[in-house]
Simulated scan of single mutants.
Amino acid sequence: MADNLEKIELEYLLNTSPAILFNRLATPSGLSEWFADNVNVKGNIYTFIWEGSEQQAEQTQRKENKMVRYQWLDEGMEDAWFQFEINVDELTGDVALFITDHVDPDEKEDTIELWDQQVEVLKHGLGSS
């Protein structure tokens, strides 16, 4: 399965500061506000909990207020990672969130729709919806 993963890149404009956004992307409390029902962390290993199911990922890269990457640890997902990158437009000051994910091509549309829904929850939590 991991061999045929397709990389998707999504962009969302958010009305917030990079520091506030980064907190929502890189901390258990921030992630549990919009990404998962609950998030536990031990070292660099994050356990994401959705409606009773769990998935683990390792935070493999982190640049304060810039980007964070998570590598899935589940069997068959060794090549799958997702990344949040914050980009601030130098001219306008607009804050954009770039999400990179790896999906099964058959699940691409569903995954994009899911990210859209999750980011709407994030925007609402940030007061920028």
Results as ranks from 00 to 15, higher is better:
59 Q>P: 02
98 F>N: 08
14 L>C: 08
110 D>A: 15
58 E>I: 06
67 M>S: 15
63 K>Y: 04
100 T>N: 09
27 T>L: 10
46 Y>M: 05
14 L>Q: 06
60 T>H: 07
73 L>K: 14
26 A>S: 15
68 V>A: 06
113 E>H: 11
100 T>F: 05
94 D>G: 02
51 E>T: 03
7 K>H: 12
24 R>Q: 14
21 L>V: 04
36 A>T: 08
28 P>N: 06
123 K>Q: 12
116 D>F: 07
17 S>D: 10
119 V>G: 03
52 G>Q: 12
101 D>E: 07
110 D>Q: 13
13 L>S: 11
112 I>H: 03
128 S>L: 03
5 L>E: 00
88 V>W: 08
125 G>D: 08
42 K>L: 08
20 I>G: 00
58 E>W: 05
113 E>D: 14
80 A>S: 15
73 L>S: 02
56 Q>C: 05
71 Q>T: 09
58 E>L: 05
126 L>C: 10
103 V>C: 01
92 T>F: 11
64 E>L: 14
56 Q>I: 06
81 W>P: 00
24 R>S: 05
22 F>G: 01
33 E>V: 08
103 V>E: 03
84 F>R: 08
118 Q>A: 12
47 T>Q: 14
111 T>R: 13
123 K>W: 05
107 E>T: 07
17 S>F: 04
15 N>D: 13
34 W>T: 06
31 L>P: 04
85 E>M: 12
109 E>R: 03
11 E>S: 11
70 Y>E: 09
30 G>Q: 07
29 S>L: 03
